[in-house]
Amino acid sequence: MNTIDRYEFNIEAQGRLSAWSTRHRFAHRPLGYDYRGVETLQVKAEEWLSVAVAPYVCGFNYLRSQCAYDAAPGGPLVSVYHLTQVQDEADQPEEVCIKIFVPRENPRIPSVYWVWKSSDFQERESFDMLGISHQGHPHLKRILMPESWIGWPLRKDYVVPNFYELQDAYQVA
């Protein structure tokens, strides 16, 4: 059984968002806290869009960043969402981190563009560099690499081409 399918843990040991999600039966797995004390949760890709509403309802109204990385050669790819609760005159706004692990073959995650518009370019970069397809994204296409580029440059198993000619740049008149 997948560890995220079954939840047996102490609610007092959970962070605020994890406890709220547990009470409202949103599937997730608490991953603890990072070095700054930011609560980190894991969510299944197929449940991400419905679960994404939970942090928004809890006041995490700002998507500070979305990034992705290759966990290990041949292993899963990870999409990471850093959410912040923006309030008037808040010195230390509350933050939460959500991680979504997907297989490297056909990696798909629902886009949260319709929840946080700031995910637009960030999800496109994850697609361009790692090949993670954000389903439902209105503009999902390469943003950094040329449309003709083959492969995903930030994957650990990416084979760098021997050359990428820019013929026009080296023409002598």
Rank of each mutant, 00 (worst) to 15 (best):
L140Q: 13
E12P: 00
W152K: 04
E147F: 03
L49Y: 14
F60T: 07
M145Q: 10
C67N: 05
K117E: 13
Y113H: 11
Q42T: 06
R29T: 06
R16G: 12
Q87R: 11
V43Y: 08
Y33M: 15
S79E: 10
Q167T: 11
R104M: 07
M129C: 00
R64Q: 14
P76C: 10
V80A: 10
Q87I: 05
D120W: 04
V53Y: 07
V160H: 00
C58H: 13
N61Y: 03
D70A: 09
F60G: 10
Y170H: 12
I100F: 01
R23Y: 04
T22H: 12
N2Q: 09
E105G: 04
R23W: 01
L154Q: 11
A68N: 03
G136E: 08
P93S: 06
G75Q: 05
Q85E: 13
Y164H: 13
Q167R: 13
P153M: 01
V172I: 11
E12Y: 05
L77D: 02
K141V: 06
I132Q: 06
A71L: 13
K117L: 14
E147H: 12
Y35W: 00
V80F: 01
Q92K: 15
T3N: 14
W152N: 05
R16P: 06
R64I: 01
P103M: 05
F101T: 03
P107W: 15
R108W: 12
L17R: 03
L140Y: 08
W149N: 10
D88W: 05
E95P: 04
H139C: 10
Q42M: 12
S65H: 10
V53C: 02
A27N: 01
S111I: 11
D70N: 09
L144Q: 01
E12D: 15
F60P: 06
L49S: 05
H28A: 05
L166S: 02
Y7D: 10
D168K: 15
L130S: 00
G131T: 12
E89N: 11
V115M: 09
Y158R: 02
E125H: 10
D88F: 09
P146C: 13
I100V: 15
M129I: 04
A72L: 09
S79P: 00
T40E: 11
L63Y: 01
P93R: 04
E89C: 03
Y7W: 09
E39F: 01
V112C: 08
A173K: 10
I4H: 01
